[in-house]
Design a protein around this nucleic acid. Structure first.
Length: 924
RNA sequence: AGGCGGGUAGCUCAGUGGCAGAGCGCGGCUAUUACACGGCCGAGGUCGGAGGUUCGAUCCCUUCACCGCCUACCA
């Protein structure tokens, strides 16, 4: 006997362990068509957040669905070394010990990061398991940790080196001194994508540059006055009449004793400010281009930690950049060269990792030439070999690739794939798979120094679709699982990852990495706010699964805060939203919630109350099963095909409905409309099976005919067993637990529901007559219940119902019995005439039905009048439509016919109610 | 500046060229023999504004404000 309610904790952990140890996740049959999903590898030292949980729910549903459908499935999972993020964490640990990475040295530091990785690396995979993730953990697991691949493991690293060397040899990777985004705090270059520009309040200054030969001056505007020390020119627009005469003259660069030329360049907007722009090629991307056009050498005035260097006048050397700004403004003021200082909104580029203001810095870096790769990336999408869901993301993808810049892939970090390049004593660079290979190939015997830089983390990520499958070896998996079926990911990494995977995979394998890209919504809190630690509105998926008390939740939300002032705000939020903490909803409820919210909209506002609703759904399913088991276990459920069964239209109806929901679910999965999948299952289980079928089955189980009983039990059990399989991809734990008990009654064998065939809609079992009958039955029942409720009858009070005609369906005796039972009638009698009474009357089809109980005529009159008013409105609307000749002529015949029928029905209903009203009034 | 997305019930969201839907919330009745994490009934909407196409528009088109996001070099 099942417990009275579903407690998720009791079933989840045990089932996951059984599934994993039995090897169900790794179940593969290479004779079947392949279905592969690549997990976006999470940060190895990270923890699971709501976005992961959402994403993985969808992937797991897809994988379980296809596995049950017999595909040769592989869910390739792994973790990412997350270069910058991980290095920062370990550096912070060192900081707490009063050390920095340079105290340890590179080798010791890297060793330390590996230790941290070993220690914390299992957290996220453990959390993934709690979600029910049916991943093939052992696959590509070079480190034997049951966590899939690791982007820095030997196998994945080998692919990274191979790709780097080949791209270099093809001339697609090059090294050069370029202006790049530089994070002065981390001391590394970052890519364009890793810089976030936000508008901030700042200032703009106007500075006067006097002409070298005296006689006047030019005024330039800048938001970064300190960079003037690196100015190499002042530019004006070539067609700007005001300045035409000045071209070729030189101005004195204040504070430096240098002079610089006035040049003409189209880049300048004459309408902005004074129309004169200072040109600082060493510290501004636009100026860099201008400088190149005019053959002006960039001057770098900053050190790599953003202090003024030897290019600056002596009095500023060594100053931190913002301190230098203050000093320079003071000095300009003193020299009377500062024209103005005004508040100004400007976009400040900040490093995505450290939030430090990024400095354009002239440094030697490695780049990937993107143009040819991008062209191919655009083509495969244009040809439909890769499709986005929702489709509009294609535009975003295209726009980025159409304007692509070369990718700076070198990072001045220690944690990551070290670049396979070596320099001889003269600084000449050699690229190869190993130092040995380089020496042999180039006949080198002198000492070589390896390039200290590592690669951008996204470089290895871009290779995952093939590196995880064994590339550069020609493996069976590479053959079978590339391309994968679908990539499930967020829009924030379309550029970082999706586009780069397409380009790299195409380049090295000639194949696309995946056929579909499903871009899911970003998870927000219930109010649509971004979840962030500093707001305190983050939710830990595991807290939703296991529950958490208020005190624990508060402690957790405020631990490790960087800023104390956030504490109060967070406490307020937690107190307002989770005064009692969070109840334990269980994994299935959480997953069902995610699926239900996964429409094609781009944000998902996670509502705890929604989650509660789906926990209730799980309980409903549990209890429906409980009811079925109570009535079928150790009884004849029609397993013996030789024994006769008698099926009512109700039995045939639920089976027919089952076919329809199966088809809906199939379509939902095909369109990645998980909300429709979940909704279809929800409605079927609750609104059809529980609310109607189970209630009617109770009646049938009391039938004296053993064939009816047998048929009812068989239907109860079979439909439930199928529904459990149908729901399994979304709610794996509860369905497994229940299926184990229900399956034998339905004559199903098997160790797990996971590997059962997925239900498939059988059109031959659709039964429209039964569906029509059931519609009539429902309508009568609802009208009867409605009358009861309006007459304020207590639910337990039985009442006599009189009808003037029979419900229009095949089995009238059965239907009458059913309506009697469902509407709690003491009798359901047919009369040629309704008695003269103040009892409430309603109209169904061509019948009038009377709830045979006297009520206050005024109340009943009121009710009927209200109903008549509603009808009058609708009749008027119909009549107007039908009186319009163009409607009758031009609308499809079927629509016109429908309108006519509607009008006739309503008029009949009206006349019957008017009759009743007259009678009622007559009595008074 | 360009692009994308969004406005539908109190809230969160589906949806369709042919009587506006769900979940939660709300109101009423209800300890009934699977489930009070339940049952039954109900209230609640000019489908952002204005035009247009159409027999018919919440849906298609145009346009206007509004909100959100993404990309972009204005000093």
């Amino acid at each position: 006997m099942l417990d009275k309610s579903f407690s998720p904790a009791a079933v989840e952990q045990a089932w996951y362990q059984r599934w994993e140890s039995a090897g169900y996740f790794a179940h593969q049959d290479h004779r079947q068509p392949a279905y592969c999903i690549q997990l976006p590898p999470p940060n190895v030292t990270g923890t699971l957040h709501m976005g992961h949980a959402f994403q993985q729910t969808l992937m797991d549903a897809l994988i379980r669905y296809h596995r049950m459908r017999g595909f040769n499935t592989s869910w390739v999972v792994g973790t990412d070394h997350a270069g910058i993020a991980t290095q920062i964490v370990v550096e912070r640990q060192l900081e707490d010990e009063g050390k920095n990475r340079h105290d340890l040295g590179r080798d010791k530091f890297v060793e330390r990061v590996w230790q941290w990785k070993q220690q914390s690396g299992s957290t996220i995979t453990r959390q993934m398991r709690r979600l029910g993730t049916s991943a093939n953990w052992a696959y590509a697991d070079a480190q034997g940790q049951n966590a899939g691949y690791f982007t820095m493991d030997a196998r994945m690293s080998r692919a990274v080196v191979e790709v780097f060397v080949r791209l270099y040899e093809e001339g697609l990777i090059y090294r050069g001194k370029r202006l790049v985004n530089w994070d002065p705090k981390l001391g590394t270059a970052v890519s364009d994508l890793e810089v976030d520009s936000e508008e901030e309040d700042g200032r703009i200054w106007e500075i006067r540059y006097p002409f070298e030969d005296g006689g006047g001056s030019l005024v330039v505007a800048t938001t970064r006055p300190e960079t003037m020390l690196g100015d190499v020119a002042v530019a004006v627009h070539p067609k700007d009449e005001r300045y035409k005469a000045l071209l070729g003259r030189r101005v004195a660069l204040p504070l430096t004793g240098k002079t610089i030329p006035v040049i003409a360049d189209e880049y300048v907007d004459p309408a902005f400010g004074t129309g004169c722009v200072k040109i600082t090629p060493g510290h501004d991307f636009n100026d860099y281009q201008v400088g190149r056009r005019h053959g002006l050498e960039p001057i770098s005035i900053l050190t790599l930690d953003a202090r003024l260097n030897d290019q600056a006048p002596a009095q500023y050397r060594g100053l931190e950049r913002f301190e230098a700004r203050r000093r320079i403004i003071e000095d300009l003021k003193r020299e009377n060269l500062l024209v103005s200082e005004k508040p100004y909104r400007l976009r400040v580029p900040r490093s995505g990792r450290t939030n430090e203001i990024v400095e354009p810095m002239l440094t030697d870096q490695w780049f990937v030439a993107m143009e040819s790769l991008a062209r191919d990336g655009l083509e495969v999408v244009a040809r439909g070999e890769v499709r986005f869901f929702p489709e509009h993301w294609t535009i975003t993808y295209n726009q980025w690739l159409e304007n692509i810049q070369d990718w700076c892939i070198s990072r001045q970090l220690w944690w990551g794939h070290q670049i396979p390049a070596w320099y001889d004593e003269k600084g000449k660079v050699f690229v190869g798979r190993t130092e040995e290979e380089v020496r042999q190939k180039h006949q080198l015997s002198s000492s070589l120094r390896r390039d200290a830089d590592v690669l951008d983390t996204w470089f290895s990520s871009a290779l995952v679709p093939f590196s995880s499958l064994g590339w550069p070896e020609k493996t069976r998996d590479l053959e079978a699982f590339l391309p994968s079926a679908v990539l499930v990911t967020g829009f924030d990494i379309i550029f970082f990852w999706v586009a780069r995977m397409v380009m790299m995979t195409r380049h090295f394998t000639g194949k696309v990495p995946f056929r579909h890209v499903y871009i899911h919504a970003i998870v927000r809190d219930a109010e649509g706010e971004k979840m962030s630690k500093s707001k305190g509105n983050t939710l830990d998926p595991l807290d939703l699964i296991d529950g958490i008390g208020f005190e624990d939740l508060l402690r957790k939300s405020t631990v490790g805060l960087l800023r104390a002032e956030h504490r109060e705000k967070i406490e307020g939020y937690v107190r307002a939203h989770f005064p009692k903490g969070i109840p334990a909803f269980g994994t299935d409820a959480l997953r069902f919630t995610f699926a239900s919210l996964a429409s094609f909209s781009r944000t998902l506002n996670f509502d705890l109350e929604r989650c509660e609703g789906y926990r209730n759904f799980c309980n409903k399913l549990w209890n429906a099963t409980r009811f079925v088991l109570m009535n079928t276990e150790e009884r004849d459920c029609g397993l013996d095909a030789g024994l006769p069964v008698r099926l009512s239209f109700v039995d045939r109806w639920i089976v027919s409905r089952l076919q329809r929901v199966e088809a809906e679910v199939e379509q939902g999965f095909a369109e990645y409309r998980f909300d429709n999948v979940a909704g279809a299952i929800y409605r079927f289980v609750w609104d059809e099976y529980c609310d109607w079928y189970v209630e009617l089955a109770k009646l049938q189980l009391q039938d004296h005919d053993p064939e009816v009983q047998r048929g009812t039990r068989r239907t109860l059990v079979r439909v439930l067993e199928t529904a459990l399989r149908l729901a399994h991809p979304i709610i794996p734990f509860i369905t497994e637990e229940l299926w184990q008990k229900v399956a034998p009654l339905a004559g199903k064998q098997g160790d797990t529901v996971m590997l059962q065939p997925y239900p498939k809609s059988q059109p031959e079992k659709l039964d429209e007559p039964a569906e029509r009958d059931m519609a009539v039955l429902k309508e009568w029942t609802i009208v009867a219940r409605n009358l009861r409720a309006e007459a304020k009858l207590a639910p337990a009070e039985k009442v006599l119902l009189l009808r003037t005609a029979d419900p229009a369906l095949s089995d009238q005796a059965g239907a009458a019995k059913a309506i009697s039972s469902l509407a709690r009638l003491s009798g359901f009698e047919k009369r040629a005439q309704l008695p003269d009474s103040t009892a409430p009357v309603a109209v169904v089809g061509n019948a009038r039905i009377m709830l045979y109980k006297e009520v206050d005529p005024a109340v009943e009159g009121e009710r009927i009048s209200k109903e008549l008013a509603r009808l009058a409105g609708e009749i008027a609307k119909s009549k107007a439509k039908l009186a319009n000749p163009s409607f009758v002529d031009r609308a499809p015949a079927q629509v016109v016919e429908q309108e006519r029928r509607r009008l006739a029905d309503r008029e009949e209903e009206r006349s019957k109610l008017e009759d009743q009203l007259r009678k009622l009034r007559g009595r008074k």
